[in-house]
Nucleic acid binder design. Structure first.
Lengths: 187, 187
DNA sequence: GTCTATAAAGCGATAGAC
DNA sequence: GTCTATCGCTTTATAGAC
């Protein structure tokens, strides 16, 4: 389990997995130490602000990943339709067909909502805006594109909840497939 | 804040609100005491199994409420279409347009998922099955009805996540309205 | 930069008086 | 049935050696 890590950026993915699996409150320093192989001394050296700074750093890293991998192609990519297809494929891979929780969504349902309010709002607002931009580039009206984008992002989050509660990854794939069909049907 | 309560059933709604606001781990006995007005002695008198029994009792009460108010009319009510309309209206009221979390959905995203796995699975399975039954009674095929029911239940959960993260109840109402329109369009 | 030791507080749960 | 006092454990965070 112990890993040799010497850069703050290398710890973030491991940290993210602990927060995803146990939530903010359940991610005790003992579990974080076990998952990263870093003692408290090292952790507080990298994150002087303690657990709150660790979670904030993880959220920032997640936001950066989605911006790079998903939002940017939707907004600025040469082929909006291909960017939308890529988004659905990337979501299935990233959330492991619903086995892996969306940390931002999980934080939104827990009492971490207030503490990280800005990060949560920005994450979903950016996602909806990027997808709406792609749909507009495909000819949808601004209002229609925004509504459709909201529905898709909501469907992804709902699919994660359902798949985890039912213990069934097929429902995740099914719901994402329907969302994809609905949003690409009219363009 | 302190209330005079003398029956176990009277405590459950207050308990539920504490779990909803703070999650399972965040719902400390101190907070539960503050919300219910009951000391630890009384709480362990009503719930000898401690916090786990409290949460299980809350989940059971929630399941009973949905069964009575939503599932039964969908399954057995005289007017399936009216039962579906009632479901959407009841959801908007129950979840306060996304201000109030679905405890079952929140538990599914947290590490409470394994501990209460059966209750979570049953809640969503019953919801999907009841809605699918209503749609079948309206003439949809079994497969089509089941898929549509999954999409609606997922949309409700996704709408809660989005509304809470964006701090915007309008998105909840909007998404539920679209889900309702989509599911009632073809019947 | 990483460790151990420890502080200070909060946790769930129990015991026993009333 | 409700209370207070308390146990034993875990928590986050800090201090200081190396």
């Amino acid at each position: 389990m112990a890993k040799q890590v010497s850069e703050r950026a290398d710890v973030l993915p491991l940290l993210g997995e602990v927060f995803r699996e146990h939530g903010y409150e359940g991610a005790s320093l003992a579990r974080i130490t076990a998952a990263t192989g870093l003692g408290k001394g090292s952790l507080y050296h990298f994150f002087p602000g303690g657990k709150e700074e660790m979670a904030a750093a993880v959220l920032a890293e997640i936001d950066g990943w989605f911006e790079r991998e998903i939002y940017a192609p939707l907004r600025d990519g040469a082929d909006p339709a291909a960017a939308i297809d890529h988004m659905f494929a990337a979501c299935d891979a990233y959330f492991r067909s619903g086995r892996r929780v969306c940390l931002v969504g999980a934080f939104a349902l827990a009492d971490t909502r207030d503490r990280f309010a800005v990060a949560l709002r920005d994450y979903f607002a950016a996602w909806v805006a990027a997808l709406a931009a792609a749909l507009q580039r495909l000819g949808r009206t601004e209002i229609d594109a925004h509504a459709a984008a909201e529905a898709v992002v909501g469907a992804v989050q709902g699919a994660i909840v359902l798949a985890r509660a039912l213990g069934d990854t097929a429902v995740f794939t099914r719901l994402l497939g329907e969302a994809r069909a609905a949003v690409t049907a009219l363009v």
